[in-house]
Design a protein around this nucleic acid. Structure first.
Lengths: 403, 403
DNA sequence: AGTAATAAGTCAAGACACTTGACTTAATGA
DNA sequence: TCATTAAGTCAAGTGTCTTGACTTATTACT
């Protein structure tokens, strides 16, 4: 009769949770709307003027917001807008890709202050860990050289790498990503940097970036279709990144397509990997990015065939994402040369019919996102910033309150 | 300069929000774990014993929980477990299907107390509204005859019908569902019943039912693949039903499949509609359910061919849902005869490889859910109960606190 | 048996964060 | 000039959780 079953329950909350939530709501409002007065904030958040005043005062003491020039708007006392202070917080973003690793330092509003990259030697984590830790340390010290107190204001390190995580893989990846995926990266990075470390896949990172400073800014439901070496979808649902049970939600590249009696993962058909194979070029070529961009700009015939084929699969992928997630918009982004992404977008249209053809639609069904080799690292850095400052259910719960 | 841009912000919260959240967390814990003592609840929710005592006292006054026989568990004062009181709250669930409408009255723990159905005359809402309102009124008065104070404890009316909502349709549906989808159903039901009314699609309702009393009980990430006249997926993400921008998330039946050079919606290939067509029978036949069940039990050859074909599409659908949502489990349910669902499940296996083949997996990748013509109505009723009593982010916000 | 240990649950005071309503400040418009 | 309007502050009030001591009830040990 002595049942020792664990009791499962969500955590309760208390005053601290309330306060933490309200602080986050203020920051979020300032991020979405730009500078706002206390009175504006009170109306928008449904809190009282007094409460807003107290919280703003606290945020100002913490260096997260600052007052601006008073604004006269008709009768009444002029309002004093408060805006986010970019240097109020920083985060380091780290991208681990097949043959390269990139790190950036980003501030509270998502500006990249420092960026650096390094080649990853073959051999997986055993050879790459030192390179990565050195890269992070370098970015961190450069940041310290640019701004005061950066270390105190560093909220964490976000890492991004291709998924999926924790899955028994196919073993056909020459880039040892599987070894990386199995490696205790979080623990290694935490031990090596002393920072709070988070990990997400590259598509999720791209979506996080789009939400902070890109096309998904202020949206609560958006899907980012990320075309990189692989292909994946980053999901913004209810205003938050959706991770799924194991952080693998959105791994559309693993979706099997059936054609001509055989099944192929989408990843093998529409991704830069397939392009490299199509063009018979070495993905480790350092001048690759410029070369592809050049080919895309020139409208090269060899690229054209791949674009047309990939566009068919992407068009269908977008249709499927619209059908399953019912987002406000789909964003096409990638760690691909911008010219190539533009060609893809042009080739994808017109979109397939879907539930996205909705009466109340205001946003385009498909929008271009960032096409920048640094966008994944930026999104990786945006992760810790979002965790620290965006309103989230988890942030009100007692078991998340440590500070 | 007089910019009248609307300021967008999430709502703040206050003590009431805190309290409302904690009440919901208690109810949720009792629902998941069964009866618990105050001390157990305090540990599980991370609240203090005193706080739990106060909230339990309040919930007991409200008739939502009641104490049970004291339990001796080793040293120390025996604990007094508290459990949910089924008749603490009720909701009416309404299913509007092509040729039939069903209504149920459900209690706090998801037991169906009253059920009734009626045929829907052709002609869409103009002819059907009266039938529906009469059906609801009948169920409501029968409930009042069974339990005391049912009207006071009625938290709302949940309606479910096939989606998608608000989409420019294809117009090829003989059952006038498009007319229903365009009809101001919420307003009509609110005016006709005086209740708080919610609306979701049938797959979402099935998922809500599975979460309250079925295979998704206590799970935070589950996908219900619902096979009915159409086919759809109900999504439980982060412990809540995910609706998408327009309540159309999960409408996998609208997904276009490409084969033999033409595109077909999944719905036309794997759904009861396709079965009826395959068997050349009239979907309005009142003895349909028994007839199909009988055919499935006998292992009829005509059904066998459809099952084999549908299983291919369902196998792929499950693979896709696993890939995109990374759920803890996929549940196959339907408003289809149980024997048919069992045949389908048997025919679907083995599943396609996917990211669901994860190291830490404990639940089966695919589980059977309810296969019951009443499950959609039950899920419809579970909607208002979940909105009223489950922990949700929205419930802590000031703009959701009215009571 | 008697007593120490253990755990549930209560009591009463305290702390925290939001709310209330009156008040001050500073601008515009008639 | 002065009523009106709106931003923002002040100080007391309120609701909800927390704290720490205390009571109650049972088992385990001597």
């Amino acid at each position: 009769m002595n049942d020792i079953r664990p009791i499962r329950a969500k955590s309760g909350t208390n005053h601290e949770g309330t306060s933490a939530h309200n602080r986050r709501v203020m920051i979020d409002a300032l991020r979405i709307n730009g500078a706002l007065s206390r009175a504006d904030l009170a109306r928008a958040t449904r809190l009282t003027k007094q409460t807003v005043s107290n919280i703003i005062e606290e945020l100002e003491r913490d260096g997260l917001v600052s007052s601006q020039e008073a604004v006269r708007r008709g009768r009444g006392q002029p309002s004093t807008p408060y805006g986010l202070v970019p240097e109020g917080a920083f985060a380091i973003g780290l991208q681990i890709d097949r043959h390269v690793t990139r790190a950036v330092a980003v501030d509270l509003v998502g500006s990249v202050l420092v960026r650096d990259e390094a080649g990853l030697p073959p051999g997986g984590p055993s050879n790459g860990t030192k390179v990565i830790l050195d890269l992070v340390a370098g970015v961190r010290s450069k940041l310290a050289g640019i701004v005061q107190q950066s270390e105190k204001r560093l909220v964490g390190l976000g890492a991004a790498m291709p998924g999926p995580f924790g899955v028994a893989g196919s073993g056909d990846d020459p880039w040892m990503m599987e070894a990386w995926q199995k490696f205790p990266l979080l623990e290694t990075l935490t031990a090596g940097t002393g920072l709070d470390v988070g990990l997400q896949n590259d598509a999720a990172a791209a979506a996080t970036a789009e939400r902070m400073v890109g096309a998904a800014h202020g949206l609560d439901h958006a899907v980012c279709l990320f075309v990189g070496y692989g292909i994946g979808a980053g999901l913004i649902l209810n205003g938050e990144l959706y991770r799924g049970t194991n952080g693998n939600a959105g791994e559309i590249g693993m979706a099997l397509l059936f054609a001509d009696g055989k099944s192929t993962p989408l990843e093998h058909r529409a991704s830069l990997a397939s392009l490299y194979q199509h063009l018979s070029i070495d993905p480790a070529d350092p001048g690759l990015y410029a070369r592809i961009n050049d080919l895309a700009l020139r409208g090269d015939q060899s690229i054209h065939a791949w674009v047309e084929a990939a566009a068919v699969d992407l068009r269908w992928s977008i249709h499927l994402l619209e059908t399953l997630f019912d987002p406000q918009t789909v964003i096409l982004c990638g760690s691909a040369p911008e010219a190539l992404v533009n060609r893809l977008i042009a080739a994808i249209g017109p979109l397939l019919p879907s539930i996205a053809q909705h009466r109340g639609r205001t946003l385009p069904r498909l929008q271009p996102g960032m096409a920048d080799p640094w966008s994944v690292a930026l999104g990786a850095a945006a992760g810790p910033i979002s965790r620290a400052f965006d309103p989230r259910f988890a942030a009100i719960l007692k078991d998340s309150l440590q500070s």
